[in-house]
Design a protein around this nucleic acid. Structure first.
Length: 262
DNA sequence: ATGGTCGTTTGACGA
């Protein structure tokens, strides 16, 4: 089973690239972030013709997440689920696909240390941790995918010194990420690749992609059974390339291949 | 040293 997570930075702007990518890579489950669509606008897109069932959680303009699956899509949930303070924004969706409890999440950016949005980010990660208890169990196959806006360690940024005093690498953010791992999840890319300098996001500005200045913030966190079933993990950095008249997202897709059955 | 580009939109703002 092939599971992919990809922050597309507007599904409307990226639709032709997403469709081409689907035809080339044939993912069984596709976790999208930053669709920037409302639910009714997403429903007008015809992913059914590619064989997918879909769930989308979007408000339009900003945020928006989706799950596309051609291996079944059961028990869909928008947001954190029952018993947790509801989110003010559309950043999370859960569903069971091919026997795996999958999440597509778009963690708040944080903007700056001490900013209200940074507090929202830390709180959001705590609520995602609470959502795990509601939506999944560590002994089951679980895959929490998305744009976490946190670089797990210093190998995941091009120059750690440049990030001192900024978001994405602060101790508090990394602690919240670790608390997700403590629940029973593993960063499956890191399990298969130990080198630094392997990134999933590059700023559009300043030719950062070509200078290899990026961050690894798009993650797939798998439970033990997913880790054991993982065949390989890759980041399709080729998808970050492209001409001005058909620009790429600033994020590359992260692909996880699981041996069947999980 | 500074700012650099996208996408939302048509004026800034978010990333």
């Amino acid at each position: 089973m092939r599971v992919v997570t990809w922050n597309v930075n507007s599904l409307k702007a990226r639709l032709s690239r997403v469709e081409r990518w689907i035809e080339a890579f044939e993912p069984d489950v596709l976790c999208l972030q930053e669709t920037k669509l409302a639910d009714d606008a997403f429903a007008e897109l015809d992913f059914g013709s590619f064989g997918y069932e879909c769930i989308h959680n979007g408000e339009g303009r900003w945020n928006g997440v989706a799950l596309l699956s051609r291996v079944g899509l059961d028990d869909p949930v928008r947001g954190f689920g029952e018993g947790i303070e509801p989110d003010s924004e559309a950043r999370l969706v859960w569903a069971t696909c091919g026997g795996v409890r999958v999440a597509s999440c778009y963690v708040p950016n944080g903007r700056a240390l001490g900013h209200d949005h940074y507090r929202y980010k830390l709180d959001w990660l705590q609520r995602l941790r609470a959502s795990l208890d509601v939506q999944a169990h560590p002994d089951m196959p679980v895959l929490v995918c998305g744009d976490f806006n946190v670089a797990p360690d210093d190998r995941d940024v091009h120059d750690p010194a440049q990030f001192v005093g900024t978001t994405h690498t602060s101790d508090a953010e990394r602690q919240r990420l670790l608390s997700l791992l403590d629940w029973g999840l593993v960063d499956v890319f890191r399990e298969h690749h130990h080198d630094g300098g392997l990134f999933s996001w590059w700023d559009y500005r300043g030719g950062d992609f070509h200078k290899r200045k990026g961050m690894r913030i798009d993650l797939a966190l798998g439970s033990r059974r997913v880790v054991e079933a993982t065949d390989f993990v890759l980041i399709d950095r080729n998808e970050r390339k492209g001409p001005k008249d058909d620009p790429p997202s600033d994020h590359a897709p992260v692909l996880v291949d699981l041996k069947d059955p999980c």
